[in-house]
Every structure is written in structure tokens, then in C-alpha cells.
Amino acid sequence: MIRATIRRILPQLVILALVLGLNFAMFPGFFHLEMHNGRLFGNIIDVLNRGAPVALLSVGMTLVIATRGIDLSVGAVMAITGAVAASVVTEGGSWIMALLAALGAGALCGIWNGFLVAVLRIQPIVATLVLMVAGRGIAQLLTKGAILTFNDPGLIRLGGGTILSVPTPIWIWVTLAVVVGLVVRRTALGLLIEATGINERSARLAGINAKVLLIAVYLVTGLCAALAGIVVTGDIRGADANNAGLWMELDAILAVVIGGNSLLGGRFSITASLLGALIIQSVNSAILLSGMPVEFNLVIKAIIIIAILVIQSPRVKHSIYLLRASSGPVLARRAVAAKGAVGEDHP
């Protein structure tokens, strides 16, 4: 069981190690950690901390994609929930009320998406596009177009504070990932989500309530987006409706893809998606540390990501597999067993 998990996430672990190695090569102090005012301080903490929004989104996105769906609205939902949280504290509410209100708003957004997809049977990419476009407008209405700043220490701590010297966002995404991971794998949900994603018709005929399941999955994604929205809002002590979560849905989808999850649904690994999110953040970190002119930012990012995806493409993976198989007798036998005669055709 554990060995199977490690085998599943091995490519992501290797890639993450490579990208972190690249960071280290450019900046030898990369792994250095020190304490400042009771706060753990270092590049590696930055990767974990700054990766929080995409990591949070990728948890929900993994589930949605496993059902053969997609959620383009998560960035806009971040803006909405951030605006809701900021409005609550500026109106005098406590940070707990702000948190609950933001989670409620995220849940509503998720249910809306789920309703369009599961009940009205609108294609997920179209259904969630609605909220992607409209959501930012809703957020701007809430903040009246300005950055809604606040000084509530509780809400600030959620995005910019620390617990036991570690930045709060790291705690939030790790806890969420563990909770969702446990719920999905220790209950039957994971199996039922995968079955629905692979073959919804078979799943329905086998008695799975695919409709409610789909709505639940979009709901969880909305909650993840709400947490991400709170983190970025608390971090800058203000709700920036124009920029909060902008294009972040694409990073979340990319994290899921780098995590080796198929966009066609089915088998999924939340751990691998989280590694994908950390890989993306490490790439961002490498770009910032490189000191290259800004005009190169996107080109460098594109090149690294293309390289990662090429390494993961089934064809390349298969040739690596065959190459390894031909180098050792034990592996060769396994390759032949798995692939029939194919293994022998490619020495």
C-alpha cells in the first residue's frame, strides 16, 4: 500500500528534488533556516508558504478533475471569499465570523457550480466559466473597486502569522490536505469519485448517486478556494478584488497535471498534486532568485514546465521504462510480464 503510493509519486518527488537542486545551485543559502522574531525564516519556508494558495486549490481541483470535470472559477471564488472576509472584519465582526462567512460564500459558489454541472448537465468548463467571469465582478462590488484593508489581528494571522514559528498558511494547507486525504481514502468517497470519473454511466447503474457526489466535490473545491482566498487576503491585510487569485485556477490545474493526474478523470492522487503545487512554487522561486531580467520570467517558466510534462508523457515514460528494463534481468522480466511481447521488441 505505502510502496504503491511511493511508486505513484516518485516522478513528482524526483522533479521536485531537481527543481530545488536548481535553486540551490543558483543560491547556496537556499536551504538555510534561521529564526527572526520567533518566525522560521528561509527560502524553503517561502516555497511552502507561498505555495499555500495553489496547494489549497489543487486539493479541490484534484477531486473535480478526478470526476472528469474542471473548475475554472476557483481564482474568482478566492477574490469573493477574500472580499467577504475583509468586509466582515471592517464591519466590526470577529475573525471567526469572517472565516465562517468566507467558507459559507465558498460553499455557495461550489454548490452553484455543482448544480450547473450535475443537475443541468452543463459541461464543467462552460459551467465554471460563468463564475470565473462573474465572480470577480461580485468581489469588486463587495470592495467597491478598492483594496479593502483591515487591521484585525486574527484574520492577519491566518495569512501572515505563525503558529509554533511556522507560517499559518503552511499549517492550513497541510491540515486541509491531511483531512481531505483521510476522508477520501478512509471512507468510500475516493473509490466512488474515481468510479464516477472513469465511467459515470456504469457508476450510476452500480448505484452510485453521481449527482450528489458531483455537487459535493464542487462544494469541497469551493471551500478550498475560500481558504486560499482567506490566506492571500490575510497575507496582504486587504482584499484586492482585482488581483486576488488572478489566473491561479490555471496554476492549480497545472499542479494537478504535473501531479500526473489525468484530465480525463479517474485515478487521482492528492499527494502528487500537492507536490505539483510545490514544484510550481519552486520554479517561481528559481526565477526570482536567478536575477534574470523580468522579460525572461514567463519564458523560463514555460521551458521548465514543458520539460516536466515531456518527462511525464506516456511515450517518454514508456521508453524510460523499457530502457531500465533492458538494463537489468529482474526488471526486464517484469516489463515483459506487464507489456506482453512488447518488452522484447525494444531491446
Binding site: T187, A188, L192, A195, A206
Partner: peptide, 13 residues
């Protein structure tokens, strides 16, 4: 699959 679906989401076999 069907037995699990009938049992419900939160009562895994």
C-alpha cells in the same frame, strides 16, 4: 462497487 454504493459514502467496507 455496488455493495459500497448501497452502504453509503461514509461507511466504508
Amino acid at each position: 462497487l455496488s455493495l459500497q454504493a448501497r452502504q453509503g459514502w461514509f461507511r466504508p467496507l
